[in-house]
Amino acid sequence: MAAEPLDDYINAVAKALALPVEEAWRPAVRANLEVSLRLARLVDEFPLPDETEPASVYTA
């Protein structure tokens, strides 16, 4: 059993996607996931006023 929640998450996602994750890759996978979560937290915590509108979508 994995000791850390991120390790549990990596195991669950790898199993769900039938994606083999070699033991040698795990530190790099974990490091990338930690960076992604840290950046997502910054976006999530950025305060927006209630009047904020979504950006327009332009298509060619």
Rank of each mutant, 00 (worst) to 15 (best):
residue 46 F to Y: 09
residue 43 V to G: 02
residue 4 E to S: 13
residue 44 D to C: 02
residue 29 V to P: 01
residue 53 E to M: 09
residue 13 V to S: 04
residue 12 A to V: 07
residue 46 F to H: 07
residue 15 K to V: 03
residue 41 R to E: 14
residue 45 E to A: 11
residue 52 T to S: 06
residue 37 L to S: 02
residue 45 E to Y: 02
residue 49 P to R: 13
residue 15 K to Y: 04
residue 21 V to T: 04
residue 26 R to G: 00
residue 47 P to T: 07
residue 41 R to F: 07
residue 9 Y to W: 11
residue 17 L to A: 15
residue 58 Y to K: 08
residue 32 N to Q: 14
residue 43 V to W: 02
residue 14 A to R: 01
residue 12 A to G: 06
residue 50 D to A: 15
residue 6 L to F: 05
residue 7 D to P: 02
residue 11 N to H: 08
residue 39 L to S: 13
residue 49 P to C: 03
residue 41 R to C: 05
residue 17 L to S: 13
residue 52 T to L: 06
residue 12 A to Y: 07
residue 26 R to Y: 01
residue 1 M to C: 06
residue 24 A to H: 12
residue 27 P to T: 07
residue 37 L to C: 05
residue 15 K to H: 08
residue 47 P to F: 06
residue 44 D to R: 05
residue 27 P to N: 10
residue 28 A to C: 08
residue 25 W to V: 06
residue 18 A to Q: 11
residue 60 A to P: 11
residue 40 A to F: 14
residue 41 R to Q: 13
residue 21 V to G: 01
residue 31 A to Y: 05
residue 21 V to Y: 00
residue 6 L to M: 09
residue 27 P to Q: 09
residue 27 P to D: 07
residue 37 L to Q: 11
residue 8 D to H: 12
residue 21 V to N: 01
residue 33 L to W: 02
residue 48 L to A: 11
residue 34 E to M: 12
residue 16 A to S: 13
residue 5 P to D: 02
residue 33 L to M: 15
residue 59 T to L: 15
residue 5 P to K: 03
residue 31 A to I: 00
residue 49 P to A: 12
residue 24 A to L: 08
residue 52 T to R: 09
residue 32 N to D: 14
residue 3 A to P: 00
residue 45 E to F: 03
residue 60 A to I: 05
residue 55 A to F: 10
residue 51 E to T: 14
residue 38 R to G: 08
residue 50 D to G: 10
residue 32 N to I: 03
residue 18 A to F: 03
residue 24 A to Q: 14
residue 45 E to P: 00
residue 32 N to P: 01
residue 44 D to W: 01
residue 8 D to A: 15
residue 5 P to H: 04
residue 8 D to W: 06
residue 16 A to R: 11
residue 24 A to K: 15
residue 56 S to K: 13
residue 17 L to H: 12
residue 16 A to E: 10
residue 15 K to P: 00
residue 27 P to Y: 07
residue 32 N to W: 07
residue 9 Y to G: 00
residue 28 A to H: 15
residue 33 L to A: 14
residue 33 L to K: 02
residue 47 P to N: 10
residue 42 L to P: 02
residue 58 Y to S: 10
residue 39 L to Y: 14
residue 20 P to I: 01
residue 12 A to T: 09
residue 40 A to C: 12
residue 22 E to S: 07
residue 1 M to P: 03
residue 45 E to L: 13
residue 29 V to K: 01
residue 13 V to F: 04
residue 49 P to W: 05
residue 6 L to R: 03
residue 11 N to K: 09
residue 9 Y to R: 04
residue 44 D to H: 04
residue 18 A to Y: 03
residue 33 L to D: 01
residue 2 A to W: 06
residue 14 A to T: 01
residue 54 P to M: 02
residue 21 V to R: 00
residue 38 R to K: 14
residue 52 T to I: 03
residue 53 E to F: 04
residue 58 Y to N: 08
residue 7 D to H: 06
residue 40 A to D: 12
residue 17 L to W: 12
residue 50 D to Y: 08
residue 35 V to F: 09
residue 52 T to M: 10
residue 54 P to Q: 04
residue 13 V to R: 12
residue 38 R to A: 15
residue 42 L to Q: 10
residue 48 L to P: 01
residue 58 Y to W: 10
residue 32 N to H: 14
residue 54 P to R: 07
residue 47 P to I: 06
residue 3 A to K: 11
residue 7 D to M: 05
residue 2 A to M: 06
residue 57 V to P: 00
residue 22 E to D: 12
residue 28 A to F: 11
residue 3 A to W: 03
residue 14 A to S: 13
residue 25 W to Q: 15
residue 48 L to Y: 10
residue 20 P to K: 07
residue 1 M to V: 11
